[in-house]
Amino acid sequence: MTRKRATSIGFIAVLLWALLALFTVGSAPVPPLLLNTLCFAMGGTFGLIWAASTGALPALRTVPLKVYAFGTIGLFGYHALYFSALRLAPAAEAGLIAYLWPLLIVLFSGLLPGERLKAGHVIGAIIGFSGAALIITGGGGGFSTQYLIGYGLALLCALTWSGYSVLSRLVGSAPTATVAVFCLATAALSLPLHLVFEETVWPATSLAWASVIGLGLGPVGLAFFVWDIGVKQGDIQLLGTSSYAAPLLSTLVLVVFGVAAPSQILLWAALLITGGAFIAARASFKT
């Protein structure tokens, strides 16, 4: 596979993640842990079918247990927090806060051995977090506690995925097929927790079922496989930069489908969060 083709495949993940908020809203009122179970069971099953058809299954036996544990915790934690955040706060606003993860990845990566935190990282972080503050304060209209728990979970979501992404450099590499195991293990972990802590509520409409299936096949399924191919065989810097478009794309999708109302606050928050991440990324690209 050529570097250019792998990069193009990886970019598919960014487009799929732009649909994550829309499908999550559409899957209501399914509780977060049950949604985790259903989506990752689908993503993992199709991942195993793909691995079997490509002869990649034998390689799974050589992957260290710590890699499986780390990947499972990352996927489980991020999506349990994300689904919960979008149940407790407006989708567009909570989704934008969750999409602080590209900025945080750049910021945290500057703390890794051999890396250095630069002025551009700090400036980008200030700009990005000002976008999140704009959401939480309602554009200066006063601090509201109505959606504070949802916004807090969205911030934890961003911290979880950025921390997982940065620390993965210290865990070691693994074949793309391991993503299928991560997905199935996440589903297996989510199910008993759902039975203990949540009331079982199945999708009530065909739209809700379509949203759950869409999540399992796309943003919570195929996206992880194509992203893994992209970052391992393609241009990782270009892919990293493209991921900063995800907050804008996700917000645009919600507005187009009528889930979120267009507003100046939403626009400025999206621009600040995306722009802050891009500025921080440029600081990393400079020699």
Score class of each variant (00 low, 15 high):
166 V>M: 05
15 L>G: 08
66 K>Q: 12
102 P>N: 08
69 A>Q: 03
35 L>E: 06
189 L>F: 12
87 R>S: 13
60 L>M: 07
111 L>Y: 12
1 M>F: 09
34 L>N: 03
117 L>H: 10
170 L>P: 02
51 A>K: 01
258 G>Q: 07
244 Y>E: 07
111 L>P: 00
104 L>T: 01
157 C>W: 04
19 L>V: 03
41 A>K: 04
146 Q>C: 05
62 T>Q: 14
142 G>P: 13
215 L>Q: 04
181 V>Y: 00
245 A>I: 08
278 F>D: 00
133 A>Y: 14
206 S>R: 07
167 L>D: 06
197 F>I: 09
186 T>E: 08
59 A>E: 14
252 L>G: 14
195 L>V: 12
193 L>F: 11
188 A>Q: 04
120 G>A: 13
77 G>H: 05
220 V>K: 00
252 L>F: 15
240 G>S: 07
2 T>I: 06
252 L>A: 15
225 F>S: 00
62 T>C: 06
69 A>D: 02
120 G>W: 09
230 G>A: 11
74 G>Y: 00
27 S>Q: 05
45 T>F: 12
104 L>F: 03
176 T>M: 02
104 L>D: 00
124 G>C: 08
208 A>Q: 04
68 Y>E: 08
133 A>W: 14
43 G>A: 10
257 F>E: 11
145 T>R: 14
16 L>I: 02
216 G>W: 01
278 F>I: 15
112 L>F: 01
58 P>Y: 07
166 V>C: 03
177 A>V: 09
182 F>Y: 14
67 V>T: 14
78 Y>G: 01
278 F>C: 08
286 K>F: 09
77 G>R: 05
160 T>P: 01
5 R>Y: 13
244 Y>Q: 11
156 L>A: 12
67 V>M: 05
61 R>K: 15
157 C>H: 03
64 P>L: 07
7 T>Y: 04
252 L>E: 09
58 P>D: 09
129 F>W: 08
114 G>Y: 11
14 V>G: 00
146 Q>K: 15
57 L>C: 06
19 L>E: 06
284 S>A: 14
230 G>M: 07
143 F>D: 10
152 G>C: 08
190 S>V: 05
133 A>S: 12
164 Y>D: 00
203 P>Y: 03
172 G>A: 09
209 W>Q: 03
151 Y>R: 04
28 A>M: 09
9 I>F: 07
249 L>N: 10
287 T>S: 15
125 A>P: 01
268 W>Q: 12
234 G>S: 09
66 K>D: 12
123 I>S: 10
175 P>I: 06
153 L>M: 14
219 P>H: 03
32 P>D: 09
117 L>V: 15
212 V>G: 02
141 G>D: 14
285 F>D: 11
245 A>W: 05
266 L>I: 11
51 A>Y: 03
6 A>H: 02
145 T>L: 15
124 G>H: 02
30 V>W: 00
93 E>H: 13
